[in-house]
Write a protein that binds this DNA or RNA. Structure first.
Length: 240
DNA sequence: AAAGTCTTCAACCGCAACCAG
DNA sequence: ACTGGTTGCGGTTGAAGACTT
């Protein structure tokens, strides 16, 4: 990578070391977030304020989720992207523990590649299929979410369906209220698509944004695909 | 086993908005 | 109102590892 290692101002660039992470964490613990330019100056780090902020926000901040995006999260990403486009930071507010960078990367790797030549994709897909038994759904397939967006004057309606694994289904159902779901966002939409109790999950519910927007959600659970594989389906119809 | 290709993700850059003086 | 510094956002890049031939 050209220029990484040291910049013309003597600031380091490139991957962060464990020592730098510790310095930054320690500094933020003592002085709090914000004032990133002074973090860079006072913490002893030879990093730009921008770099410090980015490292904290995307990697060091407590409460960040690690690991794969779940089918539920994927559904929310698709749904909100259909609403707002590439407003990654806005979308990230609805996925606590996930960063805008993570969501942006996920979108690019999983959905942007639709732009690539179909032949190439088919070729790769075909060779991958050789590796697994016939009729067995791949992990990617099992995460597929189907979205249907319909716009009407003054209202936008979206439906999305996704298959989920049985243990994920149980895990979601066991949470009467998702721990992260209880917030409202500046733009007035209710922030917790999973903030439904079991009865409501099956019955649907209406929510009101703080700006008066009405957001109606209808949740459906149904088993589809191969019941022996313990796939269940979830879905919402969302009207904004 | 090796070389080529593809995917993932951390980190950078440029720009715009915001804020204090 | 203007200016310079700071912060946040979205787009892009490139290294590393996984996968395919």
């Amino acid at each position: 990578m050209v220029g990484w290692g040291a910049s013309d101002k003597g600031l380091r660039k490139g991957p962060w070391t464990h020592e730098e992470d510790e310095l930054l964490s320690e500094y933020v613990k003592l002085h709090g977030e914000g004032r990133w330019s002074s973090v860079a100056r006072c913490s002893g780090l030879s990093r730009s304020g921008k770099s410090c902020r980015l490292r904290w926000v995307n990697y060091l901040r407590p409460g960040l989720k690690r690991g794969q995006i779940t089918p539920q999260e994927e559904g929310i990403i698709i749904e909100l992207h259909a609403l707002w486009g590439n407003k990654w930071s806005t979308i990230a507010r609805y996925l606590p523990g996930r960063t805008d960078n993570e969501i942006k990367n996920y979108w690019r790797t999983h959905f942007k590649n639709k732009d690539k030549s179909p032949e190439k994709q088919e070729k790769r897909k075909g060779s991958r299929l050789k590796q697994k038994p016939e009729n067995q759904e791949s992990e990617e397939d099992s995460k597929r979410v189907d979205v249907n967006v319909q716009e009407q004057p003054g209202m936008q309606e979206m439906s999305f369906m996704y298959p989920i694994l049985w243990d994920q289904y149980l895990s979601v159902m066991s949470q009467n209220v998702a721990p992260w779901a209880d917030f409202t966002a500046d733009d007035g939409l209710y922030g917790g698509l999973w903030n439904l109790d079991v009865e409501q999950q099956h019955g649907g519910a209406d929510y009101h944004g703080t700006n008066g927007n009405k957001m109606a959600m209808q949740h459906q659970t149904t088993s589809f695909g191969d019941p022996n594989n313990h796939f269940y389906g979830g879905g919402y119809t969302l009207r904004v």
